[in-house]
Amino acid sequence: MQLYLIRHAESENNAMPPYQRIEDPAITPRGRLQSEYLAKWTSTLAIDTLITSPFRRSIQTTRFIVDQSPQCVHVWHNVFERGGCFRGHGPDATEGGPGMGRESIEKEFSALPHDCIIDETITSAGWWAGNRRETDDQANTRAEVVTERLIQSFGASGKTIVAVIHADFKRCLLAKMLSQVTDVEKVGAFVNTGITKLEFDGHSWKLHWLNSASHLPSRLVTGIET
């Protein structure tokens, strides 16, 4: 598989101080511009499967992609940002929010001519359903599960997979996929709509490029990981 891991566009949390953090922010006007440029770039790909996190900022970013290039969207419950959908900021913020429910996600894509396939674990109660904040150990375990899901689903098929996810969880995934290649903790901030391309040949992962923002004009490059 050819796997493109893409961070969502700038969210309201990215643009505000941490103490103003909200649990499920939308993307900003600048984020919408970033998404437009991203969608023009992804339109040059022959995408076989488009995956998105259930967070609002990822779904809104993905919507620009499918508006430009209509196709089926797969909403995976387990590619959300590290920590999950929690309220507040800082290490003591552990109260969980609901996250978007199944009907709300379906509504985001209802005007499109193609299906939206949502993991069955996402219900009307919300994809996070008020669970407490995920720990770092749980996030790293989840990264192993998602890596295996990608391999089991697409393997060495040669298919082009695009996944719109998040900075911290992208770092968790790359730590699993590229443990023998690089220390991702030493990589700088992953920019909004930044693109990382990997290839899986059936045995191992190969990194083609990391955190590319070449599709964006310099005035739109943002990268605060919040």
Rank of each mutant, 00 (worst) to 15 (best):
S110V: 12
L150E: 10
K107E: 14
A156P: 00
I122T: 00
E134V: 05
R149N: 03
R82M: 14
K159D: 15
I105K: 05
A163T: 00
S110I: 10
P113V: 09
V162R: 01
D119L: 01
F154L: 00
D136T: 04
G90T: 12
A163N: 02
N131W: 08
E106A: 09
K107V: 04
P113L: 12
V164T: 04
T121W: 00
D92M: 14
T147I: 12
R87K: 14
M100I: 04
G96K: 05
I161E: 14
G126P: 02
R87V: 14
E108R: 03
E144A: 05
A163W: 01
T135V: 09
E103H: 03
T121R: 05
E103V: 04
A156K: 03
H114I: 03
R82Y: 06
T94P: 00
M100S: 04
P91K: 02
G90K: 09
G84R: 10
G83R: 04
T94G: 04
W127L: 13
A129V: 01
A139T: 10
G126D: 11
S110T: 04
G126I: 02
I151C: 07
G130I: 15
V145Y: 12
T141V: 09
E148R: 09
H114S: 14
A143P: 03
G83W: 08
D136L: 08
Q138E: 15
S104C: 09
D137Q: 04
A163I: 02
W127M: 13
E120C: 00
P91T: 05
P98C: 00
K159A: 14
C116T: 15
D119M: 00
C116Y: 10
D136A: 09
R133T: 04
E120K: 00
I105L: 11
A139F: 09
Q138D: 15
S153K: 07
I117S: 06
S124M: 06
T123C: 06
C116H: 06
I118H: 05
Q138K: 06
D136G: 01
R102G: 06
A139M: 11
I151V: 13
E103N: 01
R102A: 08
K107P: 00
R133V: 05
T94L: 14
S153D: 15
